[in-house]
Design a protein around this nucleic acid. Structure first.
Length: 418
RNA sequence: GGAGGCGUCGCCUAGUCCGGUCUAUGGCGCCGCACUGCUAAUGCGGUUUGGGUCUCAAGCCCAUCGGGAGUUCAAAUCUCCCCGCCUCCGCCA
């Protein structure tokens, strides 16, 4: 949720942000009007409550003669208060709805426009060339005995896969390597729940536009998380944080329904319903948010470099940001089989937007105020394995293992087909 | 799954049976002031959070006793639902 004080003081800034995202600026004005209406309703109800309270307290002091008249007056006021409170509740609900409909204010410098309007910030490494016909990760993985999507489909349906043999070991190696890097960088390692309550899902903004992406267990009213950003953000919900920054690296399985992505990336394990991920999450002083964002991006880049993967960094355009993000950088690795860039990691600066909704605050000179939250992928395991296999493939079907990974794979330097 | 207990403004705690004097008691911690070579001790005052009003501040007002709904002129207190924690039993990796 955006800061209503900011909205009142600088509505044009919020309108400009809305314009950059390609949203209807009428939502901003609807929010302003709802805010105004709520304050009017609150003022009225407050006044009536004060009056009623005074009369009500005079009941016990009233003499027997006065009592009936006082009671009658108190009853009448009580009814009036009840009506005013209903109006207040209505105005508050309307404000909340209007509030949720306005996404975070984008930061200066974020490219305007939609999905295609990103700006390439940097390209690291060379786009690889191969003097043999490249195979895609599924062919390579199948030959290695590392990936089994057929049985994944048999057991669980389409977009599910088994990682077997080196595939399973590769996952564990990637998780261990990324966790070690995170700990080295000062993050607290966390194994997070993958099932969360509605409040956690809603608080992090995943029940808005992307609600149909989310698995829900109806009989228990729990949700399967699509990223450990959810439990890591909700971790401190409703708390006042004494010490900032707080940095966590959470490991969890992630579940996505992939509704509306029929036919897209259906082959292999690039887009599946369940995968594991190590996610960075920072709580910082809002003044430090942009610096922290750069830091998270640097960690992502360093990790991809450890894996010897060529990639580029893009500054995602305003219209392609999630509602919580004020800025987002994606790292896209080269996918040889499709000769295109594929998003491997993503880091978002949510400023105080997410923390306001989750009630995560810190004590400053002006009292309590929301902190800033940032998240970033350190390693989305499935996709990373796919890219790793493709980029490091050799003509004979073997796969080169990056040096950084070898200590976690018993010193092996390559994977050989079975 | 069954039975019982508990949830009070940072922490601990009084109050709940029997509704109004609760504008929530006391202790600890914390902040300020006084006293004091310094520190400690002591004394005095302050110390939930959110919102409204207000040019700002002060002030004033409203709400807030796990959450919600209800009864009532009036709810920490009575009723119902929900959430969480603890103990015991059962089951289980």
């Amino acid at each position: 949720m955006i800061d209503l004080r900011l909205l009142r003081a600088e509505p044009d800034r919020v309108r400009a942000s809305s314009h950059a995202r390609g949203d209807d600026p009428a939502r901003v004005d609807a929010l302003l009007a709802a805010d105004e209406a709520r304050r009017a309703a609150v003022t009225r109800a407050d006044g009536l409550r004060a009056e009623h309270k005074a009369v009500s307290q005079s009941v016990r002091r009233a003499s027997a003669d006065e009592r009936p008249a006082v009671l009658e007056r108190a009853q009448a006021l009580a009814a009036e208060v009840k009506r005013a409170e209903a109006a207040q509740a209505e105005a508050e609900a309307a404000l909340r709805a209007a509030h949720l409909a306005v996404p975070n204010v984008v930061l200066d410098g974020v490219p305007a426009g939609g999905e295609q309007d990103f700006v390439v910030v940097q390209t690291v490494g060379q786009v690889p060339t191969y003097d043999f016909p490249v195979k895609d990760h599924l062919d390579i993985g199948t030959a290695l005995g590392a990936i089994d999507t057929e049985r994944g489909a048999k057991v669980s349906g389409s977009r599910f896969a088994f990682l077997t043999g080196w595939g399973a070991l590769l996952e564990l190696a990637l998780v261990n390597l990324s966790m070690a890097a995170a700990v080295e960088a000062g993050f607290t390692p966390v194994i997070a729940p993958a099932l969360v309550r509605p409040e956690a899902m809603e608080g992090t903004g995943f029940l808005g536009a992307h609600a149909d992406e989310v698995y829900r267990l109806a009989s228990d009213d729990l949700y399967l998380v699509g990223t450990s950003e959810v439990p890591l953000a909700a971790y401190h919900s409703g708390e006042v944080l004494d010490e900032l920054p707080l940095r966590y690296a959470g490991f969890s399985s992630c579940f996505r329904r992939e509704a509306g992505s029929h036919g897209k990336d259906t082959r292999g394990i690039i887009r599946v319903h369940q995968f594991d991920k190590v996610e960075m999450f920072s709580y910082v002083d809002p003044a430090q948010a942009e610096a922290e964002h750069v830091r998270l991006l640097a960690h992502e880049m360093a990790f991809l470099s450890l894996l010897e993967l060529p990639f580029r960094v893009i500054d995602v355009a305003a219209g392609d940001l999630g509602s919580s993000a004020a800025r987002k950088y994606d790292c896209e690795a080269w996918l040889p089989s499709q000769e295109r860039w594929l998003e491997l990691t993503s880091t978002s600066n949510c400023t105080d937007f997410q923390a306001r909704r989750l009630g995560i605050r810190s004590r400053g000179p002006g009292g309590l105020s929301p902190v800033a939250t940032l998240n970033g992928t350190l390693c989305a395991v499935g996709r990373t394995i796919a890219v790793l296999l493709e980029v490091h493939q050799r003509a004979d079907g073997s796969v080169h293992l990056p040096e950084a990974l070898r200590p976690y794979l018993a010193g092996r330097t390559e994977l050989l087909p079975q």
